[in-house]
Nucleic acid binder design. Structure first.
Lengths: 163, 163
DNA sequence: TTGCTCCTCACGTCACGTGAGGTGGC
DNA sequence: TTGCTCCTCACGTCACGTGAGGTGGC
């Protein structure tokens, strides 16, 4: 019983929960033209999505969260890609196929370069944090070797000028 | 002539340009208590910053852009770290030093774990993009090997049902 | 039939952007 | 002295959050 996962349909609440966003976010993206539900849904009907919708929304969230793109930038990307996908799926000639592939390639490469740039800055950040951790460790070790005993209760008589 | 880079002072516009933000952003962060300029500056005087201010602002921007933290979360982190730094710089006892180091360590480790999580999701993203690129390449190669000649102009007589 | 999820406004919020109008330092 | 950068409001914008009040499907 139940449709196979591939062809299943989802309501907005299910999609939201799966991807860790609110339904408001999904409706807002629809308002911007970033994500269109299936079927007609003329005024008031419940929105319906499928696996493809989920995949596309996931892509939007990656571009937003991992690369920090604005929704306008993401929309531009999605429109370019959508046009290519449309051509690809509507019985294109071989010449059309060549053109679509030639235009899709730089689109993907640009994203990959953004990802690489992020990876580099993240690596630098990680290196700094590890260096800070090492410094802390060294100072702790130095203090362990120092005259003050590890069990604090015995150091009551430390000299101090005030009082 | 001119003060050495270490002790130089900066106006808000210089700081903004160096870090790629607007002066508005810097003033907003001050409003939230995220970044306090040097000196008094009672009502209307120009804000002055030093190298330390720049370093702290840079840290804020990293947490915002690379880890996607909210300014509230960053503020909480900055306050914890600020308190520890204060203790550290005001002639602490050895016991204070131990405590500061013991509290600073998990603070840095938490950040490092966030960075690592991001690195993992970014790697996955990069892998997907590279896979897509390979698929595109393969399809292009397959089309190159296909009967349609590479130079488009010679394919005028392609058969088509419509007209 | 009863909840539960969905729907559409619509105002609120966070993190700034963008002028208006004015003062101060190189 | 003249620009240029700075200042403080203050309203606008982007990307949603958060109810209010109501309808529809399992």
């Amino acid at each position: 019983m139940g449709a196979p996962e591939e062809t299943r349909n989802y309501r907005i609440g299910e999609v939201a929960e799966r991807l860790g966003v609110t339904t408001r976010t999904i409706r807002y993206y629809e308002e911007l033209g970033l994500l269109v539900p299936l079927g007609d849904r003329r005024e008031g009907g419940h929105r319906i999505y499928d696996g493809g919708s989920i995949a596309r929304l996931q892509q939007v969230l990656k571009l937003r969260d991992l690369l920090g793109l604005s929704l306008d930038e993401i929309l531009a990307l999605a429109e370019e890609e959508g046009a290519l996908r449309d051509t690809w799926e509507n019985d294109p000639s071989d010449r059309d196929r060549r053109r679509v592939l030639a235009q899709a390639q730089p689109l993907i490469m640009r994203q990959l370069e953004l990802v690489r740039a992020r990876q580099i800055t993240l690596s630098r950040f990680a290196r700094e944090l590890r260096k800070t951790l090492r410094t802390i460790e060294q100072r702790r070790a130095a203090l362990e070797a120092a005259p003050v005993p590890p069990s604090g209760l015995t150091s009551a008589g430390r000299s101090s000028a005030a009082r």
